[in-house]
């Protein structure tokens, strides 16, 4: 499977769907919702909504992030919005403001 790449000098307004992994190096205003992993690179910027099996954020996201398997907010990321996922990683050096919603058993 080949990836879908939104290059660093590209702006997409709308929806990105499908089954290819999506890599965002540029800007997306809208929804990214593949049945596959999503990676927002350090140069990437997404507003509105990201949903994927695994979502890795190194750039800027303003909106909702859903990872059906996991979400990683990595060093350098700026995450403004809510995260919904069963597993989450927030690295040192990441900025995150928003809510986290996880389904888990109370221990």
């Amino acid at each position: 499977m080949s990836d879908t790449v939104i290059g660093s000098r590209t702006l997409v307004r709308g929806r990105i769907l499908g089954e290819d992994p999506v890599v965002v190096e540029g800007r997306v205003e809208g929804t990214i919702r593949p049945d596959a992993p999503v990676r927002i690179e350090a140069s990437g910027r997404v507003s509105r909504e990201v949903q994927g099996t695994e979502v890795r954020v190194l750039g800027i996201v303003e909106g909702t992030v859903t990872g059906t398997r996991r979400v990683e907010i990595l060093a350098g990321a700026q995450m403004l919005g809510d995260v919904k996922t069963p597993r989450i990683l927030i690295s040192e050096g990441a900025v995150f403001r928003g809510r986290v919603e996880m389904d888990f058993q109370e221990r």
């Binding site: 499977m1 080949s2 990836d3 879908t4 790449v5 939104i6 290059g7 000098r9 590209t10 702006l11 997409v12 307004r13 709308g14 929806r15 990105i16 769907l17 499908g18 089954e19 290819d20 992994p21 999506v22 540029g26 809208g30 593949p34």
Partner: peptide, 15 residues
Amino acid sequence: TEIGPATRVIGDVEA
């Protein structure tokens, strides 16, 4: 920018 073979984009792309 590459729109993969199993990807559907609905909207506008400016590059």
